[in-house]
């Protein structure tokens, strides 16, 4: 126990400011506060994201997982990954859509309550990537579902994914 506590104490707080949408205009911390208060005002709770791997190589998953490490501290920013599409505001899709995952992806999308925000990440999700469309792959996510935003990169960095999440929810929040 002493060991555990001492490690916590020595490690301290590592969380970095959220990425800035327009780096030259915004200072980092107002961005975070702003997003949190916007999310709170509109949703009255955290933004809930459901991730679906529609056929990725698992590289994109690694960077989504990185978002949970203390440097990015996603939950601290009011963003939460949830276990069911029925609890989700946003569907985060990785990979080209393999034909074997097409139906499962559509079903997951159907289960998300309106308004359904969809974000496709990685070169694969955005445009099919190296796999493209073939007998086994439908290519980009947009070939199967309506997509709001895309984030390229192979895999995209956690910062790029985070920025993408902000860009996806910003207009939706503004509208609401």
């Amino acid at each position: 126990m002493w060991n555990t506590l001492s490690r916590m104490w020595k490690t301290g707080l590592l969380t970095e400011p959220l990425p800035v949408l327009q780096p030259s205009l915004d200072a980092p911390s107002p961005e975070l506060d702003h997003l949190q208060s916007q999310l709170l005002a509109v949703l009255g709770r955290a933004l809930c994201i459901r991730h679906v791997d529609a056929g990725s190589c698992n590289g994109c998953e690694l960077e989504i997982q990185a978002l949970h490490n203390p440097y990015y501290n996603l939950e601290g920013a009011g963003i939460q990954f949830v276990a069911s599409p029925r609890h989700a505001d946003l569907l985060l899709v990785t990979g080209p859509v393999s034909v074997n995952m097409e139906e499962a992806l559509r079903r997951t999308y159907d289960a998300v309550p309106a308004p359904k925000l969809v974000m496709a990440i990685g070169d694969c999700g955005a445009c099919g990537g190296i796999f493209g469309a073939s007998y086994a792959s439908r290519g980009s996510v947009a070939n199967v579902l309506p997509v709001n935003t895309t984030v390229t990169g192979c895999p995209p960095t956690p910062t790029a994914i985070l920025r993408g999440i902000l860009e996806t929810v910003r207009p939706a929040l503004a509208k609401a």
């Binding site: 791997d53 056929g55 990725s56 190589c57 990979g95 080209p96 393999s98 034909v99 074997n100 995952m101 499962a104 190296i130 796999f131 073939s134 007998y135 086994a136 792959s137």
Partner: peptide, 11 residues
């Protein structure tokens, strides 16, 4: 398994 089959060998 097989859900993420992307046709790598053919590609």
């Amino acid at each position: 398994l097989g859900y993420t089959h992307k046709g790598v060998a053919k590609l």
